[in-house]
Design a protein around this nucleic acid. Structure first.
Lengths: 240, 240
DNA sequence: CGCCACCTTGAGTTTACTCAAGTTTTGTGG
DNA sequence: CCACAAAACTTGAGTAAACTCAAGGTGGCG
């Protein structure tokens, strides 16, 4: 289960994070948050907010996927972050959002007003976990964008859709001889993937075809890829 | 003056950020932080911590510049962030640092233990401003790495060293006919710049030579560049 | 069943990379 | 202050990876 602000009970995160340098800790009482946050739904490709809009709300993704992107004046687009279940968006340092947020699939959100946020210590601590996690993801993505080949980028992207694999010191298949296989749902078009990975749509398509030819994946639907050899894909990410 | 945790007085940020969706607000009392944080000095190229080290401290840069980078196993390096005066480093979601931190110049830091951080509301609010600012910088840098040409990357880098210029809706020279000129100190070698911009050292060198030939900059020392036409450089960043 | 959006593939080009000298700068010691 | 060495930087020539442009194919939905 996704540890989440909207969860009914206060879940223990375990103690392994107690020494980490983060900001604040759950106070042990999140009653103020239990029923906070009003629901909001988006259809695929609805825009939640535009870059430059006044930043007055925070959102938590309950179901679905949202992408955040920036545009250059000539139309070049970079998808800077993909927000999944349990993660948040709408952070801003200044008064305006620095990115546009658009739903990739039908999405359910919880909405928090800026003032609600300030009044809940539990919420602030949850938000901080999100911020710190996003920072680490952004660092990792900078490595991908700055230093990885097209093949490595696509492999890394596919691995990011396989839970509990592909991290530092990849664990390998849970059990040796177990089937090292998984179907992942992209929930992005080739163009959106390209804009996320800093490639063109043609390059993404060519790499996917190459992985198919090599027998590492099967494309079930355009949106759904069966990875027939997770370790094989992981070897291509550049992290080994 | 840099708004800073180690500042003696509590500075008002003005009210323009009051509506921004951030986390927490200064409480109006930062007495707990006034004298907190012990001093630490680094020489240029000293490593403050390595990726994977236990994350037990936060640091604030008082003087100098620190770079954060990640390495791939084959030696490729990506500089993911440059920490300047008033900014912080050492954040971590899990128990270990996700990047290596190395001083680019002689540097003076303030060190905060994880437990100190948790006990100060003022500090948490300051840290949050840093986190939110870093997120926006990382978004912008993702655009650079994913979508900009070598020339645009170097121009963007140079503009980032010119205070109060190059932002969205560039203000232009403060006064028309005023000299649109500035000397910037890189405090990075060509290799470090290349690793920050996702280029090779040769490409950085060629772009700098090209800007020199075009009369937009003069290289005073390897480390120090006089921009003779700030607007001209700004036009090359891709944001216009 | 046909349309529209999306995806794939090919051919040719371009940008940035690699490899290889050479040059300049910086720092050190005489 | 000069000589030297080491590090850093520049430049050139050739290559390779990814891009652009242009068809053509596929699949999902009315």
């Amino acid at each position: 289960m996704v540890h989440s602000l909207h969860a009914n009970g206060l879940e223990s995160d375990g103690s392994h994070e107690d020494n980490a340098v983060g900001v604040g800790q759950p106070t042990g009482s999140n009653s103020a948050m239990r029923n906070a946050g009003r629901k909001h739904k988006l259809n695929a490709h609805d825009v939640l907010f535009y870059e430059g809009d006044k930043a007055e709300r925070l959102y938590e993704v309950v179901h679905g996927v949202v992408m955040m992107y920036k545009l250059l004046p000539d139309g070049r687009r970079q998808v800077v972050y993909i927000v999944r279940e349990g993660d948040m968006l709408g952070f801003s340092k200044e008064e305006n959002y620095d990115c546009t947020a658009e739903a990739l699939s039908d999405t359910e959100l919880l909405v928090y007003e800026a003032r609600e946020v300030a009044s809940s210590a539990y919420m602030q601590s949850y938000i901080n976990k999100c911020l710190l996690g996003q920072m680490e993801n952004l660092h990792e993505h900078a490595v991908l964008l700055g230093r990885k080949s097209a093949l490595e980028r696509v492999a890394t992207f596919l691995m990011s859709l396989v839970p509990n694999r592909g991290g530092t010191g990849c664990e390998g298949p849970p059990e040796p001889e177990a089937d090292d296989t998984r179907t992942v749902v992209l929930s992005m078009t080739r163009q959106e993937i390209a804009d996320y990975l800093g490639l063109t749509i043609e390059t993404v398509s060519r790499v996917v075809s190459q992985l198919k030819k090599r027998g590492l994946i099967k494309v079930e639907k355009q949106d759904s890829i069966h990875i027939t050899n997770i370790c094989g894909i992981c070897q291509l990410t550049g992290i080994h």
